[in-house]
Nucleic acid binder design. Structure first.
Lengths: 348, 348
DNA sequence: GGTCAATTTCAAACCGCTTTAAGTTTAAAC
DNA sequence: GTTTAAACTTAAAGCGGTTTGAAATTGACC
């Protein structure tokens, strides 16, 4: 562990000069700089981050809070998102510090993390409609960016996909195929993206004069189980005519719907249609499902990469409003969607 | 941002006393301690981690390197593992710092992370048979624990599941069901766990006098795609009689095998049998597959929780050899396994 | 009351780096 | 040969904690 002081003594220079030389300050002569840089390399000198941090007030670290209950499932999308994030940060010589906090202790965790002075910025994920974390961070004027857009005109940086466009187009496709009883399997109520998706869904149907019964919109965590349970309930027909088309907030839910449909003896793409939003989980490709799935598609890894860039700029003082991006979503039609059954599916 | 000095002034004490009081040193009077602790709470004082770190040499952070190539898939098990790890660390007031490094730059990344002085310990994942990271860390005497056992008698802490027991029992089950042409879809060659599993597989078959053709052991990343491709190749029969049973290193691979079997018109649990190792991905439950899957089961989240405890003890000076654990694996029989077809499956 | 030890508190040094303000050289200009 | 600006270099003061060694206080005991 070579220290700056040792290096300076070794070179016959003062620590100040060495520090300047290594950090690219202009006041250092060219020959001196070269000499210093080479000696540093030769002695394998690495500045101690804690010391630098203490002196500069910058930590070179970005925080993210891992929200999960001890016995609850972790969103598998998170790892892809994290992959993007950590790659993007690594490119910028930033480190990610990942701290776990149970759902109940979120706000306190954010505050502790900030107060400990170990991070320069925060990534906020899965915002809710009136997100207290965002309110708190805004008030403290602590640098942060959000994965998800919460309102129309917000004062902070964010990355989001075009949820409205995606779900409008998906709904339009189903309508065009003749479907009239369309159900939405949405994410948990209160999450910003779920609200956006539901609004797009309702608006599009309303524009065509199609009524949406309340029971055709469900909220749940985005798991295979939740998809199965909800679809099985609908398909049982116990609560009225089942939907002929299912719009799922995630491919995982779609897998559950497919399982329920299979058990009900229904053919996907013929008896019923399914569209899901595909965040692109590379190990679970919607084009390879037993019936290839029609999806709205936007790789979640991109979100991580983009947010990494944004938080970097934000820490460097960029105006939050210059760091806002809404990404396009592709609609990819495969065989899980087809014309609505002739009899409206009432014969099952 | 209250500092220690401010707090001390506020209390009319010296920083030294306040520091001692908060850190539980015995030289501080009881009333003084209470007074200090309460004032700290009132002023919402949090010691600056960088400063503490610089003074103590301890950072309160544990590092993990996220190995992923830009365009490669990320192992979905990683998020579950990470969940366990970050929960376990949070309980012990440790933070996790997650740094990305491409496969080619692993060793250098580990070295940089250590040299920067920002972590007290490291978690090493997915060890290979002769792992250079382990060699390097051992040589530097830097605290670390490994997810996976590399040899019989090693000098560092590790957590692993009983790969040998799991794959022996799974193989035995298939033999007992009458299968003789059994294939192993293993993880990538060179990974310690893959070596263990293959050894168990071969030993068990050899003990029964069953020969394993080389083509019945494949190595690949553990994805649905890889499972599908390999199974499709075998089932095509172009390279000899196909296996009647498949032993998969992961449920993801099993999904691929099931897809290939479906396309070949084979009934799972009757025409062919499948067993997979299930690390328990909560969003993808093997009991809910179209044919419920027979599995060897060990939640990977446990690994994270246990390793968190181990690295904590290791940093506190525990002897590495006292931190070694091999966890039991359950064999859960469901309907994807059945008696080998009467004709040995030669009729397809 | 004086002594001695135990208890409690403090001043100051230190961790390793950055940065300000000031000092010293060097080169150019007069 | 000064004068002056430009180019380098440095000493020293932080950053916010911890810790050592010494001093001040307290109380028990003779």
């Amino acid at each position: 562990m070579t220290t700056l002081r040792e290096l300076a003594t070794h070179l016959g220079l003062s620590p100040a000069t060495v520090s300047r030389a290594l950090n690219g300050f202009p006041e250092v002569g060219k020959k001196t700089r070269i000499r210093v840089v080479e000696a540093a390399k030769a002695l394998d000198y690495r500045p101690n981050t804690s010391a630098r941090r203490l002196a500069t007030g910058k930590s070179g670290m970005v925080g993210i809070i891992f929200r999960a209950a001890r016995n609850l499932l972790v969103d598998p999308h998170f790892v892809e998102y994290l992959a993007g994030l950590s790659m993007g940060l690594a490119e910028r010589e930033l480190d990610l510090i990942l701290r776990h906090a149970p759902p109940g202790a979120q706000l306190a965790s954010y505050q502790r993390l900030i107060a400990s002075g170990s991070i320069d910025g925060l990534i906020v994920s899965a915002p809710e409609v009136d997100d207290r974390r965002i309110a708190m961070l805004t008030e403290r004027n602590f640098p942060f960016v959000v994965h998800g857009q919460v309102g129309e005109d917000v004062a902070y940086g964010f990355y989001d996909i075009d949820n409205h466009g995606a779900f409008s187009r998906a709904t339009e496709l189903l309508i065009a195929l003749g479907h009239r009883r369309i159900a939405l399997l949405n994410g948990s109520a209160g999450l910003a993206f779920a609200v956006q998706r539901e609004a797009a869904f309702r608006t599009t149907l309303a524009a065509q004069g199609i009524h949406v019964p309340a029971r055709f919109v469900s909220h749940a965590d985005m798991s295979e189980d939740a998809g199965y349970n909800q679809a099985a309930k609908w398909l049982s027909g116990l609560h009225g005519f089942p939907p002929t088309a299912f719009l799922c907030s995630s491919t995982l839910m779609a897998i559950g719907v497919m399982r329920a449909a299979g058990e009900a003896g229904l053919e996907i793409g013929k008896d019923i249609s399914i569209i899901a939003h595909d965040d692109v989980l590379p190990h679970l490709r919607s084009e390879h499902f037993s019936t290839p799935l029609t999806v709205t598609r936007a790789p979640i890894r991109e979100a991580g990469l983009c947010l990494a860039e944004m938080i970097h700029k934000r820490i460097d003082g960029a105006a939050p409003r210059s760091l806002q991006r809404t990404a396009n979503v592709d609609l990819i039609v495969r065989s899980s969607t087809g014309a609505a059954p002739q009899d409206g599916g009432r014969s099952w």
